[in-house]
Deep mutational scan, measured.
Amino acid sequence: QLRFETNGEEQAKKVLEEAKKHNLEAHVTIENGKWVVHVK
């Protein structure tokens, strides 16, 4: 499982879109005010 700390909602959405293009499972959590994308 990969973990990407992003700078906010915009970047998190871009990472999610990329993951979906590659048929990867991804979800976002907010940790300590940071948007974190988890990709399987």
Rank of each mutant, 00 (worst) to 15 (best):
N23L: 06
N32V: 01
N7I: 11
N7L: 11
K20Q: 12
K34A: 08
T29R: 05
V37G: 00
K14P: 03
A19I: 12
K13R: 12
N32I: 00
K40L: 14
H27A: 07
N7A: 14
L2K: 07
V36L: 03
W35P: 02
E10Q: 09
N32P: 00
E5V: 11
E18M: 15
H27S: 12
R3M: 08
Q11D: 14
T6Y: 14
N32W: 03
V15S: 02
L24K: 07
K40S: 15
R3C: 08
A26W: 05
V28M: 12
V39N: 00
L16W: 08
N7K: 11
T29P: 00
E10I: 07
I30W: 11
W35M: 03
L24G: 03
N32T: 02
K21T: 07
K21S: 10
V15R: 04
V37E: 02
K20R: 14
G33K: 02
V37A: 02
V39Q: 00
L2I: 13
A19M: 13
L16S: 03
H38N: 10
F4Q: 03
E10G: 06
N7F: 12
K20T: 09
Q11K: 05
K14V: 12
G33Y: 01
K21G: 05
N32H: 08
E18K: 10
G8H: 13
E9R: 08
A12G: 02
W35Y: 09
E25R: 07
K20L: 14
E9Y: 14
E5G: 01
R3W: 08
K40I: 15
N23K: 11
N7H: 11
E18L: 15
A19W: 08
K21V: 07
N7S: 14
I30K: 09
I30D: 02
K14M: 12
K20Y: 12
V37T: 02
F4E: 03
K40P: 08
A26Y: 06
V39R: 00
L24F: 11
L2M: 13
W35T: 03
E31V: 08
K14N: 08
E17I: 09
L24R: 07
G8A: 10
N23F: 11
A19N: 01
G8S: 15
V37M: 00
V28L: 12
E25T: 11
V37H: 00
E17L: 11
